[in-house]
């Protein structure tokens, strides 16, 4: 399984701070699966989010997501 953690606007849109999805997969397929699971609220936010796979920012939709990995869904940063 893959552990998905949602932050800020992504957590609000998904309605959960974290959940498990089946793996392995790719970042593109994971985005599609999460959008399908949570509907348009997350679907609007997710394209603006970066995915952090096991601590590294995924550069493309083809980035592998191994089974057991933690994926963070990160909306655009807004500190300061």
């Amino acid at each position: 399984m893959i552990q998905v953690r949602y932050f800020a606007a992504a957590r609000e849109a998904s309605g959960t701070p974290a959940e498990e999805v089946s793996g392995p997969t790719t970042t593109g397929a994971l985005r599609a699966a999460l959008s399908a699971r949570h509907g348009p609220d997350l679907g609007d936010v997710l394209p603006k989010c970066a995915l952090l796979v096991a601590g590294a920012r995924a550069a493309t939709d083809e980035t592998p997501v191994p089974d057991g990995a933690t994926v963070d869904v990160l909306p655009p940063f807004a500190g300061g």
Binding site: A8, A9, P75, P76, F77, A78, G79, G80
Partner: peptide, 27 residues
């Protein structure tokens, strides 16, 4: 330093308006 902090540190903020609405900044 301030520019880099705003761009790179994973922090988010939600604005609360006087009319009761709220909005995530930067989305």
């Amino acid at each position: 330093l301030v520019e880099r902090i705003k761009a790179e540190v994973p922090i988010w903020k939600k604005q609360q308006f006087t009319d009761g609405e709220s909005e995530w900044v930067g989305l």
